[in-house]
Nucleic acid binder design. Structure first.
Length: 85
DNA sequence: GCTGAGCGG
C-alpha cells in the first residue's frame, strides 16, 4: 500500500460521535490527513465506526496504541489497522 | 430517542 495513507479503522463508537470529535481525539498523535465517519446513506444514521488516515505509519501506530480500548463519549472504542478494499 | 458487530464511498 504505497500509494495510500495509513488508514486506521475505529469501531465501537457512539452513534452521537462526530468527525470533529474524532479529529480532536486523534490529532495529538500525528498528522491526521483525513477523518471519515461512516454514515448509512439510506437512513442517514451513523454506522458507529470511522476511518482516520495518518501521514506516516508511526503516527498511526501511536494513535492505535493510545486510543485502542479507551472510553470515548461513554463508549469503549477499538482502533486497529484498516482493511483497504 | 431508539441499536452495537463490523471495514466506507
Amino acid at each position: 500500500m504505497v500509494l495510500c495513507m495509513w488508514l486506521v479503522f475505529i469501531s465501537g463508537l457512539s452513534f452521537y460521535a462526530t468527525q470533529d470529535q474524532l479529529k480532536k481525539l486523534f490529532a495529538p498523535f500525528g498528522l491526521v490527513t483525513s477523518v471519515n465517519l461512516v454514515v448509512d446513506p439510506r437512513t442517514k444514521r451513523p454506522k458507529g465506526f470511522a476511518f482516520v488516515s495518518y501521514k506516516s505509519q508511526i503516527e498511526a501506530e501511536k494513535a492505535m496504541k493510545a486510543m485502542n480500548g479507551r472510553i470515548v463519549d461513554g463508549r469503549l472504542i477499538f482502533v486497529e489497522p484498516a482493511n483497504e478494499k
